[in-house]
Write a protein that binds this DNA or RNA. Structure first.
Length: 232
DNA sequence: GCGACAG
DNA sequence: ATCTTGTCGC
């Protein structure tokens, strides 16, 4: 699929934060979301054990599922190196180039992107899901395994229960129970979709496990690619 | 100043 | 993210 050219790459955390502040104005937060997405892409990245020197080997994977059957309709994976050190709040810069390349090699254009991480639930309201949404123009949201910013109300124990995730007075996402009796995941919108649609889709993607099938498939694909790539 | 901090 | 044994459960 087509992805717009990457903005100038930041050399410092300060430059990276400036890019986030600039791109944030391009977000569409009014679109309620695709009424009925036919295909949904999951994105995830795995790392090799090269420590934290900022150049760890990685594999970025994208898996596109049919929204109704959850069967794989396309996939793409690329290996490379981390493009930035891990800094909370600048996490996107670590895996963005590899994920963009994997998206470009995808034979189809999905109707929606589901990222492993956050969207608006971010110190500057511009997490990975927002960044990928703006660069691709596609609707996107994030599902994270742990909270990052703000505080959340514990959702009820039943599958489908939610509790608001707030940063101060602002609701930036939702804690969503995808399996009864299991800790919740954290949903936040990225681009061109609302929280209601994002949570509804998140539930459709978790018929059996805590994490969405999109993330689980992409995780497996990226791990396999790392294992198969010859260490350099 | 100190702790917390998506993956 | 990744490093890791055993253990409980379907």
């Amino acid at each position: 699929m087509e992805v717009r050219d990457l903005h100038p790459w930041p050399d410092t955390p300060e430059e990276a934060r400036a890019i986030q502040d600039r791109l944030r104005s391009l977000l569409d937060l009014d679109d309620p979301g695709p009424a009925d997405p036919r295909t949904i892409a999951g994105l995830d990245v795995s790392y090799a054990g090269d420590g934290d020197d900022g150049a760890a080997r990685l594999a970025a994977a994208v898996v596109v599922l049919d929204a109704a059957s959850l069967e794989v309709v396309a996939e793409s994976v690329v290996t490379g190196t981390a493009a930035f050190p891990y800094v909370p709040g600048l996490f996107a810069f670590r895996e963005l180039p590899a994920l963009i390349e994997a998206l470009r090699r995808l034979a189809v254009e999905p109707d929606l992107l589901v990222c492993d991480g956050y969207g608006l639930a971010h110190p500057r309201r511009f997490g990975l899901a927002c960044h990928l949404g703006v660069l691709t123009g596609l609707p996107s949201f994030g599902i994270a395994k742990t909270p990052f910013v703000g505080a959340y109300d514990q959702p009820g124990k039943a599958r489908g229960s939610t509790g608001p995730l707030r940063d101060g007075e602002e609701v930036v996402g939702r804690a969503l129970r995808t399996r009864e009796g299991v800790k919740p995941v954290f949903v936040s919108v990225g681009h061109r979709i609302g929280l209601d649609a994002a949570c509804r889709i998140a539930l459709a993607l978790t018929p059996e496990f805590r994490l969405p099938e999109t993330t689980r498939r992409a995780d497996r694909l990226s791990r396999d690619a790392l294992a198969g790539a010859l260490p350099s």
